[in-house]
Simulated assay, not measured.
Amino acid sequence: MKMLHTMIRVGNLDESINFYCDVLGMKLLRKKDYPGGKFTLAFVGYGDEKDNTVIELTHNWDTDSYDLGNGFGHVALGVDDIYGTCEKIRELGGKISREPGPMKHGTTVIAFVEDPNGYKIELIQMKKDTV
């Protein structure tokens, strides 16, 4: 088995695509309208779907916003320079909801950013390989 994607529902598809692509550096991999169901699916990620797990952005045409609920946690992204990444996200208009620093009760350096819909994206400082 292989993890393929995580799906989140979004109120404004263009705004969400811009955030994931322009702010977080993903690529729009594919996008398709389904007129019979009145929804659009857009898949974004850091590489081809056959080799990478991606995010499916689902936009129901007649829904502008969603209650995020309390079951969904976050999407996590590994980054090489968490402080530089957060600064760039801030410069591009992204909202940093938790500044970079060690996680509580641990040493892993993390930060959180929110997408335009309020979904949490955790940034995790990747550990340098030691030889």
Rank of each mutant, 00 (worst) to 15 (best):
I8F: 02
V10I: 09
V10S: 03
V10W: 02
N12L: 04
N12P: 09
L13Q: 12
S16V: 02
S16Q: 11
I17R: 06
N18V: 08
Y20S: 05
C21N: 12
C21D: 05
C21A: 02
D22K: 14
L24A: 08
M26R: 00
M26S: 12
M26G: 03
K27S: 15
K27A: 13
K27L: 11
L29W: 09
L29F: 10
L29A: 06
R30Y: 09
R30W: 04
R30D: 11
Y34P: 00
Y34C: 01
P35V: 05
G36Y: 03
G36T: 03
K38M: 13
F39L: 15
F39V: 11
F39Y: 14
F39D: 03
T40A: 12
T40R: 06
Y46N: 11
Y46Q: 08
G47N: 13
D48G: 12
E49D: 06
K50S: 13
K50R: 14
K50I: 10
N52A: 01
N52D: 02
V54T: 15
I55K: 01
L57H: 04
T58V: 11
H59V: 03
N60V: 08
W61K: 03
W61H: 15
W61S: 09
D62E: 15
T63G: 01
S65V: 06
Y66A: 10
Y66S: 02
Y66H: 09
Y66Q: 06
D67V: 11
G69M: 04
G69Y: 03
N70C: 07
G71V: 03
G71R: 13
F72M: 04
G73D: 14
G73L: 07
G73R: 10
L77F: 15
G78T: 08
V79G: 03
V79W: 05
V79P: 02
D80C: 08
I82Y: 12
I82A: 13
Y83P: 00
Y83L: 10
G84M: 00
T85I: 05
T85R: 08
C86W: 07
E87Q: 15
E87H: 14
E87N: 15
K88M: 12
K88T: 14
